[in-house]
Amino acid sequence: MTTHSSVLVTGASTGIGATYAERFARRGHDLVLVARDQARLDALAARLREEHAVSVDVLRADLTEAADLTTVEARLRNDARIGILINNAGLAQSGGFVGQTSESIDHLVALNITAVTRLAAAIAPRLAQAGEGAIVNLGSVVGLAPEFGMSIYGATKAYVLFLSQGLSLELSPKGVYVQAVLPAGTRTEIWERAGIEVSNPSDLMDVGELVDAALVGFDRRELVTIPPLQDAAHWNALDGARQGLLADLRQAHAADRYRAVS
């Protein structure tokens, strides 16, 4: 991507999204910042314009609201300057599965799955036609770990990983780069907003360190970037085991261990 491409960042008013915005502004990219908090968006936009001499548009939107989501989709479809989407907006889950209400489930799925998918779908055809561009989807290591107990949240993040892998297979031959970023615990407001008390904040990664590591993966064109993973061989082994499992499938017949014993 050239530095003339604009970057649209969701969840941009604070935390990971705001840090992505600052880092891309530092690289010379113009920005479109999307979030619910108008005052924070305006303050961030003013600072980035002043510090980095880039153009920054603010688009206030709640991506769980149909009309707002449609507005952001239209911007992604129609604004040819936007060449990078940072699909960052997300919501965490507090409490176990049996404690969730229908409303909380709908809200979580709407932001973590529906919005991510529809925004990617809005920009992907245009990027594929142009033969360049990037879609970055923020997942979580929780999507690899049902043991962590955040069943719905983890399931939404497992979806984000699968979606990213599938999009990469489809779009990378057309020149479009897709990256899944899987943070672990990071010091952002997501915990407070979800009503989750963090016992030891020092155990969480600084948001700047997280985004800087993710951008190293971005520049290297990694498909899956896991900043807290110390040994990449573990991810390679996991993905290799998955591919080995697929190679062992025999669709026409059940495995011998499932055959009835006469």
Rank of each mutant, 00 (worst) to 15 (best):
Thr2Leu: 09
Thr3Lys: 10
Leu8Asn: 00
Thr10Asp: 03
Phe24Arg: 00
Arg27Phe: 01
His29Gly: 04
Val32Leu: 11
Val32Pro: 03
Val32Cys: 09
Val34Lys: 09
Ala35Arg: 04
Gln38Lys: 14
Leu41Gln: 01
Leu48Met: 13
Glu51Cys: 09
Val54Asn: 02
Val56His: 08
Val58Lys: 11
Arg60Asn: 01
Ala66Pro: 05
Ala66Gly: 04
Val72Arg: 05
Glu73Ile: 00
Glu73Lys: 02
Leu76Lys: 02
Ile82Gly: 07
Gly83Met: 07
Leu85Arg: 01
Gly95Glu: 11
Leu108Phe: 02
Leu111Ile: 15
Asn112Trp: 04
Ile113Met: 13
Ile113Thr: 08
Ala115Ser: 10
Ala115Asn: 05
Ala121Glu: 12
Pro125Met: 04
Gln129Phe: 03
Gly131Met: 11
Ile135His: 02
Val136Trp: 00
Gly143Lys: 08
Gly143Ser: 08
Pro146Leu: 01
Gly149Arg: 09
Ser151Arg: 00
Ser151Ala: 11
Ser151Asn: 07
Ile152His: 02
Thr156Pro: 08
Leu167Ser: 04
Glu170Asn: 07
Val178Arg: 00
Pro183Tyr: 06
Ala184Lys: 02
Arg187Thr: 09
Glu189Arg: 11
Gly195Arg: 03
Asn200Asp: 15
Pro201Glu: 04
Ser202Ala: 14
Leu204Asn: 05
Met205Ala: 09
Met205Glu: 05
Asp206Lys: 06
Gly208Trp: 06
Glu209Pro: 10
Val211Ser: 01
Ala214Asn: 05
Val216Met: 03
Arg220Gly: 01
Arg221Leu: 01
Gln230Trp: 07
Asp231Pro: 08
Ala233Met: 10
Asn236Phe: 14
Asn236Met: 12
Ala237Asp: 13
Leu238Gly: 10
Asp239Phe: 12
Gly240Trp: 07
Arg242Met: 15
Gln243His: 10
Leu246Phe: 07
Arg250Lys: 14
Arg250Tyr: 09
His253Val: 15
Ala254Ser: 15
Asp256Met: 13
Val261Tyr: 06
